[in-house]
Simulated assay, not measured.
Amino acid sequence: MKNRLIIGLFYLIGLVLLSFGISMIILAGLGAGPWDALFVALSVNIGLTVGSWTFIVGFLLIIVNGLLLKTKPDFAALITMFLIGSMVDFWLLVAFPELAIASVMIRLAMLITGVLSAAAGISCYLQSNFARNPIDHSMMVFHKLTGKSLSFSKTFLEVTILIVAFFIGGPIGLGTVLVAFGIGPLIQMFYKPVTMFRKSLCHETAS
Rank of each mutant, 00 (worst) to 15 (best):
L69A: 03
T80I: 11
G31M: 08
T80M: 07
M81Q: 14
S23E: 04
L108K: 00
L27N: 10
L27D: 04
I106H: 01
I46Y: 14
N65I: 04
Y125N: 02
I106V: 15
G121P: 12
S103Y: 03
P134E: 05
D74Q: 15
M81T: 14
G33L: 00
W35S: 04
I135W: 13
L68G: 08
N129M: 07
A100E: 15
A118C: 12
G66Y: 11
C124K: 01
P97D: 12
S86E: 14
L69D: 11
G33W: 00
V44F: 09
L38W: 06
A118S: 14
I63N: 03
I79L: 15
S86H: 09
L15M: 14
I46C: 09
G33N: 07
L67W: 14
V40S: 02
M105V: 13
L99H: 06
G121E: 13
M105N: 14
R132P: 11
S103F: 05
F55I: 12
I84M: 11
S117V: 04
V57G: 01
F90I: 04
L93K: 15
V44W: 04
L126F: 05
F59D: 01
G14K: 01
L126R: 05
G14E: 07
D136G: 09
A102P: 01
L69F: 02
R107I: 06
M105A: 14
L93E: 14
A76H: 09
F75T: 09
L93R: 13
A37I: 00
D74G: 03
S23Y: 04
A76N: 10
F59A: 15
L93S: 14
V64R: 05
L61C: 06
I25W: 00
S123G: 15
I62R: 09
F59Q: 01
F20P: 02
G51K: 08
V88H: 01
G114S: 06
T71R: 15
A76W: 13
P73L: 11
L67C: 06
F96R: 08
F59L: 13
V64I: 15
T80E: 09
L69P: 11
I26N: 08
M24C: 11
V57E: 07
F39P: 09
W35G: 04
L111P: 04
S117I: 00
I26K: 12
D36E: 12
I46G: 07
R107C: 08
L93T: 12
V64P: 07
V88F: 03
G85I: 06
A32S: 13
M87C: 10
D36I: 00
M24T: 00
G31H: 09
M81V: 13
A102D: 15
G121L: 11
P97W: 08
A120K: 04
P73A: 10
C124W: 00
I46W: 13
M87K: 05
G66D: 07
L15N: 11
N65D: 12
S128W: 09
P134A: 04
Q127S: 02
M87L: 15
L17Y: 14
F55V: 07
I135Q: 03
G51T: 06
G121H: 12
I84Y: 12
I46E: 06
G85F: 10
G66M: 08
G51N: 05
L67S: 03
R107P: 10
T80L: 10
L48E: 13
V57W: 02
I84D: 12
F75R: 03
A109R: 02
F82L: 15
A100H: 14
I63K: 05
G121F: 11
